[in-house]
Design a protein around this nucleic acid. Structure first.
Length: 718
DNA sequence: CAGTGAGCGAGCTTCCGCTTGACTT
């Protein structure tokens, strides 16, 4: 008897295959296999929203393999992820493979031999309520995206898009910019008193004035206060000592990993996910290829019992038993989660970051270390702080001094979560003080401040905001950010998101005609309806029957009323050297470029050149940074086409000792810099010494893996 | 390694959510 088990991820297939033994063939579907067609709406609105599904382009080979395997098998078990999308994938597979067995669906939340075997022995029918909830979600998203986008093509510019998720992301960024624009900075003053305790200085901050919060909005206010305080003495009124506990943060989900990688490592979401995928798929750590972390797209903080035990044993061994809480730490997932996977954690805590470092690229190492430390800390005891807070009075003014000291580090020994904003934290202990004690004044330290506008979104804070709104899923945060950047709705500069002119125009149109969909609560409302569908309490078509008529109304209204907008191109400040009219930034097939505003009378265009402060040694021109068609950065001379010097890396003002070309500096993956001659025909052809010694071992392993995967694929094609 | 934007109106763009690669120096 042979059983075919189908999972979503090929890595997972490999792992499970080992657990189930030779009576099982385990294959993967690589995610969804059927979907609405890309080229048309694919939803028959007139006929109760009947969807039309087709095989996803490029998935033909996968489905063929699955079909062949299905023929060979006596039984098929659909083991896609245990969530809404997974249930739908299972259903599509069942339809396509014509699975006749009623009980063909299995699920497991934990990839252990025991859990997988148990699941394999207890198949159940597919949960059609759940499938239909997914279907309603899918169709709604299709209607929103494929109905509004064409409207934008017509009214604004071709190629634009709108959607339930991406448009909310754009809205957040635009709203924030609006807040910043409208922000009026206010002056305020703070006052600190430096006092002498006799056993060391005490710094106390003014917190109250005549029982109220101090209002010091100008230098005059401050001067009045200083005059008032001139003859006052400072006396300790009360001393409070407290013990504070601080608990570890839960292990990573996709969202929190992206946030922390952005905050602490400066990685953009896309890079974080790429690197995490490498760690998940496996790396040769000397003894063979091992997956170093669990699955990286998850919304759950759940941890397998086995992993928890391993972590507790590890911590006990390494730090002592005080560092392990008597009861294992259990974290609750916040909000609406689907809990298909575990939290992101190392597959084994025994593989410490230091131990695997030689096999990882610098980025892989940093990310692995982050994941490892976060997880280990999450299983450790809370930290205990001793805090002291002292109230000091001077006339009607009340000052406060506080200090805190870590008595027991607990989890802080291993990992402390990053902060979006710098938060002041008092550290260190105060000198001993007595109630009623009079403290001589050393000096008063007044400071002027201005209130600050809220900060622009970063990758970290945007993902956080979307997650809190329940908008988007672990698999879509990174692609959504890419989309709104590619559409030129927003730009990321110095890690912050700014709306573009186009983004603001499109958003204001959407707000005018489709506000309900852009409402940050729209998705939450949709999700509650989907819950009812999953429970069998609401037919899926009803969700759409309720949604569509008012939406259609809005579409008609927008179609008729929306004015055709021409987005005014941004001025560059330069004048056209051919006709003298201002040059403006325009969007072309390859991104932004400079064009004459006199178009079509004057057709002058120029690429955007970023200066580098480096001179061209060949002709004395300036080296500038540019981009290829595909967006890759390269460097050339601004005398081009008069001067043909060109290089991939940043040139330096130094000739190659061998051939005389201008040298460049290449940044290596391990962070080091290397001087390279960009001349392909340079006789020195790359100094052999640094190449052989500096090339890390790991990329070789990855390459090997890739080629084997490739050969596998090509053979299966044949 | 260095392009491009209108309209003329071919044929196309576009959504969200599951997956992994395919190209690069």
């Amino acid at each position: 008897m042979k059983t075919l088990v189908i999972v979503e991820s090929p890595t997972k297939a490999k792992t499970i295959s080992k657990m189930l033994g030779r009576n099982y063939a385990v294959k993967s579907s690589f995610g969804h296999v059927r979907d609405l067609p890309k080229s048309t709406l694919g939803v028959d609105v007139e006929n109760h929203f009947e969807p039309r599904y087709i095989t996803i382009r490029g998935k033909g080979d996968v489905l063929k393999t699955l079909k062949d395997e299905a023929k060979k098998a006596d039984r098929i078990l659909l083991a896609s992820d245990p969530d809404r999308e997974g249930e739908a994938i299972a259903w599509h597979l069942r339809e396509h493979l014509r699975v006749t067995e009623e009980k063909c669906r299995i699920e497991f939340n934990e990839i252990t031999a025991e859990a997988v075997k148990r699941a394999a022995s207890t198949p159940r029918p597919i949960d059609m309520d759940r499938v239909e909830a997914q279907q309603a979600r899918r169709i709604l998203d299709r209607l929103v995206g494929y109905k509004i986008s064409p409207l934008l093509w017509k009214k604004v510019k071709k190629g634009l898009s709108a959607g339930r998720v991406q448009s909310v992301a754009v809205r957040l960024i635009c709203d924030r910019e609006e807040e910043i624009r409208n922000f009026i900075s206010e002056e305020y003053w703070t006052l600190a008193a430096h006092l002498d305790s006799g056993k060391g200085p005490v710094i106390a901050k003014l917190i109250k004035q005549a029982g109220k919060k101090p209002r010091l909005s100008s230098q005059d206010d401050m001067q009045n206060l200083l005059d008032y305080l001139a003859d006052k003495s400072y006396q300790v009124k009360s001393i409070q000592q407290k013990e504070k506990k601080r608990s570890a943060a839960p292990p990573f989900t996709t969202s929190t990993l992206q946030q922390e990688a952005s905050r602490r490592l400066g990685m953009v979401t896309r890079k974080t996910m790429q690197t995490a995928q490498q760690l998940y798929e496996g790396i040769n750590v000397g003894s063979g290829v091992v997956g170093l972390i669990t699955y990286m797209r998850t919304d759950s903080v759940r941890i397998a019992g086995q992993a928890q035990e391993e972590a507790r044993a590890f911590v006990t061994e390494k730090y002592g038993k005080d560092y392990v809480p008597p009861k294992p730490n259990i974290y609750a997932s916040r909000g609406r989660t689907q809990e298909a996977h575990e939290a992101i954690r190392p597959s084994s805590v025994a593989r410490t970051p230091g131990e695997v470092k030689p096999f990882l690229t610098p980025l892989q190492y940093k990310l692995y270390k982050l994941i490892w430390e976060r997880f280990v800390a999450s299983q450790m005891s809370p930290a205990i702080m001793d805090t002291v807070s002292v109230d000091i009075s001077a006339g009607v003014c009340l000052f406060k001094a506080s200090g805190s000291v870590v008595r027991f580090a607990g989890f802080m020994q291993v990992y402390i979560e990053g902060q979006d904003k710098e938060e002041e934290e008092e550290s260190g202990l105060l000198p001993p003080l007595q109630p009623e004690q009079i403290l001589p004044l050393i000096k008063l330290d007044p400071k002027q401040h201005f209130t600050q506008p809220p900060p622009r979104y970063t990758d970290a804070t945007l993902v956080k905001a979307l997650e809190e709104l329940g908008v988007g899923r672990p698999s879509t945060y990174a692609p959504t950010i890419d989309t709104i950047i590619n559409r030129n709705y927003v730009a990321r500069e110095a890690k912050q998101f700014y709306p573009t002119e186009l983004g603001q125009v499109v958003l204001s149109l959407l707000m005018e005609y489709f506000e309900s969909i852009l409402d940050t609560g729209f998705t939450a409302g949709m999700e509650s309806r989907l819950d009812l569908v999953e429970e069998g309490d609401l037919p899926w078509r009803q969700v759409l029957e309720d949604f569509y008529p008012p939406f259609y109304e809005a579409l008609q209204h927008a179609e008729a009323e929306m004015e055709k907008i021409v987005v005014a191109p941004e001025e560059s400040g330069e004048a056209c050297e051919k006709c003298g009219k201002p040059m403006v930034y325009r969007m072309g097939a390859y991104g932004r470029f400079l064009a004459c505003s006199g178009f079509p009378d004057c057709r002058n265009t120029k690429a955007i050149l970023i200066p580098t402060n480096v001179k061209c040694l060949a002709c004395g021109g300036n080296i500038v940074q540019r981009k290829t068609k595909t967006g890759r950065i390269f460097y050339g001379c601004d005398h081009y086409p008069g001067c043909a010097y060109v290089a991939w890396d940043l040139p330096i003002e130094k000739p190659c000792p061998v051939c005389g070309w201008q040298m460049t500096v290449r940044k290596l993956k391990n962070g080091e810099e290397q001087e390279v001659c960009p001349n392909k025909d340079c006789p020195a052809k790359g100094p052999a010494k640094p190449r052989t010694t500096r090339t890390p071992k790991e990329p070789k392993a990855v390459k090997e893996k890739k080629t084997t995967a490739k050969t596998k694929k090509t053979t299966s094609k044949k």
